[in-house]
Design a protein around this nucleic acid. Structure first.
Lengths: 228, 228
DNA sequence: ACCTGAACACCGTTCAAGT
DNA sequence: ACCTGAACACCGTTCAAGT
């Protein structure tokens, strides 16, 4: 957690052997592997090869593989540009969530690996803060504002994960085998709407509709602030 | 894909050695392992041990590990009870999505592993059908109805995955270390709303607010059908 | 203090052989 | 036709030793 202080190796290595590796170098190499070949290719052994060292040398700089992923998360959160947020509460939430979505779109594995915590990283705390703040300003109680934040996060995390999985599949096996098989067998009596859609499903579901859906969600969340 | 016909081994095994294993037995064993110890414990070797056989014997009945997971997905989809759906479009979508959510809640790994396809399984096609149908009935174009379905799926998939990850983490390390650390360091100047919430965040985010958020989303999606 | 090598206890999957 | 055994090319992590 936390990117931590710059490492000043001369100070910490009093008496001992001078470090040949640094946490920063390891993180940079890990990002390069992920960018080039995906998270599934990021292994401790592979990473060690990348920095011309041994797997165990990495454990001097990183707790374990999960710890490494958390460091990558913090790194991504820190680099994410903090957007200008509009005043209007609904627009404010939409802009904040869209920025997070765009920021994480390049690192879908982050969401998949670490979706657990609702708070992504201290470096991204402005996101829940902005959403809760806008929701409270528009009249929701603190409780409902937190619930609204969670709804926005569910929607955003789901979109990132589903789209990433779809992209991966598209890259892996050119066509969409499962889906095509399903559509080939559609029974117009049991699923008339889907059958009527026919071949348009793939094109319709390929469109990026994140923002429209988000707008609808936020409108629904901010409407009717009285009802629990 | 597809659970397939009952296997009638006497017929297929003309001339050869009689089968000792069946696909059904393998699936049942896989479900038992997952139920008892989670997907991460489901390995081909472990499964072979479970059915008192060898890893390679499984490959006679299943394409590979991914194929096995797809079979498990179909199995779960088939067993999911199909709910009574109310007439009102908004209520209809909420009821359908909530049923899917509840049906998948016991198998979060399904979503994590296979979220890729928007259509979960032929056995669950009633779900997109119901959502698209209700959306069209309430005045949306076919295109916007499909987009509405996807928004509902993003939200639902996200909720399942985030909650599953949180549960797993809770089970793993009793407390919520990352989150607690984050809250301990909250700066009231930078994140006043979160700081004001103080210790209530864990309790508030532990509540099940899936349905409320879904209602808000659906209301937003069905409102204002004129705007593209 | 930092790094290395060998080892442990695993993976999914292929290939050639047995019944 | 179905199953087995040995092998391949990997994992993350521990432990004891080297500089």
């Amino acid at each position: 957690m936390m990117a931590g202080m710059p490492e000043s190796p001369e100070r910490t290595a009093r008496g001992g052997r001078p470090p040949r590796l640094s946490r920063a170098e390891i993180i940079a190499a890990a990002k390069a592997v992920i960018a080039a070949e995906g998270v599934e290719q990021l292994t401790m052994r592979r990473l060690a090869r990348e920095v011309r060292s041994t797997p165990m040398a990495l454990y001097r700089h990183v707790d374990d593989k999960r710890g490494l992923l958390l460091l990558l998360l913090d790194d991504a959160a820190e680099r994410m540009p903090r957007p200008e947020l509009p005043e209007d509460p609904a627009e404010r939430i939409v802009a904040a969530a869209a920025a997070i979505r765009d920021g994480l779109a390049g690192f879908p594995w982050i969401v998949e690996v670490l979706a657990a915590d609702d708070l992504l990283s201290t470096a991204a705390l402005w996101f829940p803060e902005a959403v809760v703040d806008a929701a409270v300003r528009s009249g929701l109680s603190e409780e409902r504002a937190v619930h609204a934040y969670r709804a926005v996060w569910y929607y955003t995390a789901g979109e990132i994960i589903v789209r990433a999985a779809a992209d991966r599949r598209r890259a892996a096996d050119g066509a969409r085998p499962h889906r095509d098989a399903v559509f080939a067998e559609l029974d117009p009596d049991r699923t008339p709407r889907l059958a009527a859609l026919g071949g348009r499903w793939p094109a319709l579901t390929a469109e990026d509709t994140y923002r429209e859906g988000l707008r609808a969600l936020v409108a629904g969340l901010l409407a009717d602030p009285g009802t629990p």
